[in-house]
Design a protein around this nucleic acid. Structure first.
Length: 841
RNA sequence: GGGCGUUUAGCUCAGUGGUAGAGCGUUUCGUUGACAUCGAAAAGGUCACAGGUUCGAUCCCUGUAACGCCCACCA
């Protein structure tokens, strides 16, 4: 034996020994008699799948260690034990990582072909996944690789989509046009959980607004105001409630309604707010309550649109400055509060200000899903460790809001919904051209141009909808092919495009006058001739109906036609699911739950799973959703226990981050000090759910411990000889063995109660300060001077204690203990086994 | 604005209704025939503060303070 324990020589060899044994796979585990006595016959942990967009960090090392301890403990006890590994495609997170990569290469996803981008990202994640798997192996993870899952495996995708369809059928999914949290950089909407708050010093502008003065932080959104709101009990403004007031704005005078809403705080500002339902979450709510018009003035690139008049095209901040400047010029700006701090909603990834804009998105109605989850947690059917988190999760569930699951990225599971293209066409007709009903038949007959006194602003190539002005129905659509500017006097009456209507110029003049009574029409009046192509609509549609569009069709397969308008032109919704919509279903999907009802055997054997061990910061993102969706789909809880671990901080209690340069790479330190040492350093002194610190000093300390048990073994080996005589066990031996039993009991108790730090510390302390420092020291004289029988007794006691000690320690320090166990078996000439399934425990 | 957590040795943190614990660090001594990545020992704490319950409180209760975290629509 070497003088020291050298992890490098051992780890790879041992891991492959375990893998070859096949015992990571529960199907290969021996059926023990003990099993029948156990309360729970099986034990299962679904690994929180690491994101396949990088390599493992110290947090991963912590969860691997915690879960591996539980798994090894259960397996040694004789339970049918499964630890199912996986990887997460991590939708938006990976998209952000990949966007950065593209940026470095001078590329952008917005200029790439969807399929090609997807393929590249797929390869990127597969590469990362491979690296991560090897890293998990290095950390000693005794998981069943044969059952490994990826969130983009075809069967997973299918089942995720089935869940969406089922929820849709049952009214739990709806498509809503709402003000969403939009990230201008990433060009996607985010859910409420992905919104970060950042305190910012801004300005609060007080401006004249009709008879009021009101305060706003966003004057540039004023073009989207569709009401003024005050508190219903505010005496100052009571007389205005329900009335329309005239306001002098930057783009002229306009009239606006005053409403009363309790959301308005009379104490803040002047107690009056302008309501911009399109661009503020609170205003959107008020808008819904009062059925206000939603007027979008900011587009998805963060620029003002045509509703902003001369400010159109400006970016938000630019427009704000300009608007304030103009308000000042017009004397509409009362004052500016420069010391105004507020919590700005920013993108949790890029920290840029989020732009609330109205967009149609898919939502999950969460209240009906949360209800049974709340009941279950309240009844204590799920044990949450640490317990105080129970309150936190309950509070969140009780105040849950509907969940936007649409993401405008390509990396993820495509939403199985189809959009009627005809709808799209109609929608893209921002332009409509009205025709008197008497003219409509001529168009059907082939009339290919129209004369207009008014400049409609159409340009060549514009798509237009053709509307019957009297019926207000769209009867067709087409494209502008030519625009001519003429005058009434220069119009060619013989032009066949117009022949059927007017025979003389007088008749023409009269007709123009009739249709435009307020205008003074002469022969010199300009006339616009719009030439177009025409296609008849399949069905007459109200313009309103068109703009509200055919409802999307929810289906995995592409439907033959749109059930609303029978159009066969359908395209798939380009959006993908929020990653958590799929990972929220992870426990039952990985175990082979099937929509068809023909679940895999694993589902019967291992669901509900035993423990969900994960980071406490994804309690809402993941744990709460797994509980809701698990109950919804399987009618059972996805797991019986939730164990939440905290963050790993550096020795100065700082969060580890690449920019601070204080990151401890778990694989790096494992390389240097051995995996076992890193594992112990992560576990000892780490109470459930609390942040803990790690330093190289600490790891070094446990490396020393590995050396210690190694040298205990070496000492015993050096003194070993085959025991031939019947040993005479002394009372001291008996006492020592009793103490060992007591220690084992304590350790077991702590492991069962998820108190891993206690179990680890007790084991550590027993081995070093009781076994090595006391028992071995006391035994030394007996080994050297004692008679044969006494020596045999001493030796046997030592071997027993060592064997039991390494069993106890195995879940924590699997490599060194296994290596020692193998060595001990060699020494005693025993048949080789592995500690993985050694009994009893 | 709500909620939660923490406060124990120089540092990092355990822990318990009955005289305070570990690791690291410090000091002294020992050991080179298991291990110097070692052993033996020592110093070091009004258990944040103020009340209360109790025979007894670091622990249970109430309040205060500091620090940290989470949630929340104050324009």
């Amino acid at each position: 034996m070497d003088k020291r324990y050298i992890p490098d020589k051992v780890e790879e060899k041992i891991y492959s020994l375990w893998e070859k044994s096949g015992f990571f796979n529960p199907d290969n585990l021996p059926k023990t008699k003990k099993l029948t006595k156990l309360k729970a016959k099986s034990f299962c942990i679904i690994m929180p799948p690491p994101n396949a967009n990088g390599s493992l960090h110290i947090g991963h090392a912590l969860f691997v260690t915690l879960e591996d301890i539980m798994i090894r403990f259960a397996r040694m006890k004789g339970q049918k034990t499964l630890w199912l590994p996986g990887a997460d495609h991590a939708g938006f997170e990976t998209q952000v990582v990949f966007d950065k990569k593209l940026e470095k290469e001078g590329r952008s996803r917005f200029k790439m072909d969807r399929k090609k981008l997807w393929q590249e990202m797929y390869e990127f994640t597969q590469e990362n996944k491979k690296t991560m798997e090897n890293q998990l192996r290095k950390l000693g993870a005794s998981c069943d690789w044969s059952r490994e899952k990826f969130t983009l495996d075809p069967d997973i995708i299918k089942e995720v989509q089935h869940t969406f369809i089922k929820m849709h059928k049952e009214g739990l999914i709806y498509r809503g046009l709402r003000t969403v949290n939009w990230c201008v950089k990433h060009q996607t909407a985010l859910s409420g959980l992905e919104v970060k708050r950042k305190e910012e010093k801004g300005k609060l502008y007080y401006m004249k607004y009709g008879p009021f003065t009101l305060a706003t932080a966003r004057p540039e959104t004023k073009f989207g105001d569709t009401a003024i709101a005050v508190h219903p009990n505010d005496k100052r403004y009571k007389k205005y409630i329900g009335k329309e007031v005239e306001v002098q704005g930057l783009l002229g005078k306009f009239k606006i309604k005053v409403i009363a809403d309790k959301a308005v705080d009379p104490e803040f500002g002047t107690g009056v707010i302008k309501v911009t339902p399109a661009h503020d979450p609170l205003d959107a709510e008020i808008g819904t309550r009062h059925n206000l018009e939603v007027k979008q003035v900011i587009d998805r690139y963060g620029k003002l649109n045509e509703h902003a008049g001369r400010y159109a095209g400006m970016k938000v901040m630019e427009a704000r400055e300009k608007v304030v400047e103009d308000l000042k010029k017009k004397g509409l700006l009362v004052k500016v509060d420069e010391n105004y701090t507020h919590n700005l909603a920013v993108c949790f990834k890029c920290e840029r200000t989020l732009e609330p804009i109205p967009l149609p998105q898919w939502y999950v109605k969460t209240k009906p899903l949360a209800k049974p989850a709340i009941e279950t947690i309240e009844k204590g059917k799920i044990k949450i460790i640490p317990t105080h988190r129970k309150k936190v999760i309950l509070h969140w569930l009780k105040n849950i809001e509907d969940w936007n699951i649409s993401r405008q990225i390509i990396w993820g599971i495509r939403i199985p919904a189809w959009i009627c293209e005809k709808t799209n066409e109609a929608k893209s007709y921002k332009l409509t051209m009205g025709f008197h009903e008497s003219v409509v038949p001529q168009i059907f007959k082939g009339k290919i141009a129209t004369w207009r006194i008014r400049d409609h602003g159409f340009k060549k190539g514009d798509a237009v909808a053709f509307e019957n002005s009297q019926e207000e129905k769209i009867f067709g659509h087409g494209t502008i092919t030519k625009v001519e500017k003429l005058t009434v006097g220069t119009m060619n009456l013989k032009d066949k495009t117009h022949y059927a209507t007017y025979k003389t110029r007088d008749e023409l003049l009269r007709a123009f006058k009739k249709h435009n009574p307020d205008k003074n029409i002469t022969l010199q009046t300009p006339v616009f001739a719009y030439h177009y192509t025409f296609k008849k609509a399949n069905k007459l549609m109200k313009l309103k109906a068109i703009s509200s569009s055919c409802p999307p069709i929810v289906s995995i397969e592409k439907p033959k036609q749109c059930p609303s308008c029978k159009s066969e032109k359908l395209s798939q919704d380009p959006d993908v699911f929020d990653t958590w919509f799929s990972s929220g279903q992870w426990p039952y999907l990985t175990l082979g739950f099937k929509n068809s009802g023909k679940h895999d055997k694993d589902f019967k054997d291992f669901y509900p799973t035993s423990v969900m061990e994960t980071a406490s910061d994804i309690l809402f993102f993941w744990v709460a959703r797994m509980i809701m969706m698990g109950i919804y789909r399987t009618k059972k809880l996805p797991f019986k226990n939730v164990y939440l671990h905290g963050l790993i901080l550096d020795k100065d209690k700082q969060k580890m981050s690449k920019s601070k340069g204080n990151v401890i790479n778990p694989l790096g330190v494992a390389e240097e000090y051995g995996t076992d040492a890193v594992r112990m350093a992560l576990i000892a002194g780490n109470t459930p759910g609390r942040n803990s610190t790690i330093s190289e000093d600490k790891i070094r300390g446990y490396r020393n411990f590995a050396t210690k048990i190694w040298n205990i073994t070496r000492f015993i080996s050096m003194n070993y000889e085959e025991i031939k005589t019947k040993p005479v066990i002394t009372p001291k031996d008996k006492k020592n063995l009793k103490q060992l039993e007591a220690t084992k009991k304590k350790v077991t108790k702590h492991l069962e109660k998820f108190e891993f730090h206690r179990a680890a510390e007790i084991t550590y302390h027993y081995i070093w300060h009781t076994f090595a420092d006391k028992i071995i020291e006391e035994t030394k004289p007996r080994l050297q001077n004692g008679d044969k029988k006494d020596k045999a007794a001493a030796l046997e006691t030592l071997i027993t204690i060592l064997t039991e000690s390494i069993k106890m320690l195995h879940p924590f320090m699997p490599y060194a203990t296994e290596e020692i166990f193998q060595h001990l078996q060699d020494l005693q000439g025993k048949k080789k086994k592995t500690l993985l399934i050694v009994e009893p425990w």
